[in-house]
Amino acid sequence: MSAALQTIALEKRFGGLIATDKVSLTLEHGARHALIGPNGAGKTTFVNLLTGVLPANGGQILLDGNDITRKSQIQRARLGLGRTFQINQLFGAMTPVESIGLAVSERMGGGRDFWRRVGTRTDILDEITGLIERFRLTEVMDHPTRLLPYGKQRLLEIALALASNPRVLLLDEPAAGVPEAERGELLETLAQLPRDVSILLIEHDMDLVFAFAERITVLVNGALFADGTVSEIMSDPRVQAVYLGSDAHA
């Protein structure tokens, strides 16, 4: 059986600068996999390559064994590659119910429907309510998104990605900027994400990584530096050197 998501010698250059240097990474089905690395290690570029925001200069990306290297952002999303953004990308004028409803209805093929009124399909409505409750948005579900507290917006960010029912979910620093008081709620929600979704967590908050991940890949200078289980990585002296070194500078 093929991996949920796999890159083979993925490469990206900006002029003479190599941002992603022949990275081969395998995300198993149901994985809780963290991608870490010091600032400027090329994590963001890597996510942009995976999701199709940037075209790759070389290598391959396989989603469930299918080559998606040349597919557009939209096609990749439709094939089951979901993502959240480091900086919230939400629909400020819409409510959480509407935002999630849109994602669900797109998945169920309702997005082209220009005749039916919004909110008249019970199957969609049930899914929305389920997601709203799972992501603890019940209280604020009919408030405009731009007025929500930051932590709720962060939860909605993840809920939106999950609403499209992805097979693979890329979480880009999900806890970034969340105040301490709202952090616990977020971590609990992350822990309860469905097991059949394979997750790649991009993070440099090590506490979150250790709490969440079962496997870790370290990226340094755009290249794959280390890859292994949490304990393997934690005991790897080279990783410690990179991390302690970079932490001392940061």
């Binding site: 953004f85 990308q89 400020g92 004028a93 849109l102 309702g110 997005g111 429907d113």
Partner: peptide
């Protein structure tokens, strides 16, 4: 309609709509 809602979403945040 749901189509109209998707237009609002595109206007609000095309990046997210695409993803």
């Amino acid at each position: 309609s749901p189509y109209g809602l998707s237009l609002l979403a595109i206007r609000d945040n095309a990046l997210r709509a695409r993803s």
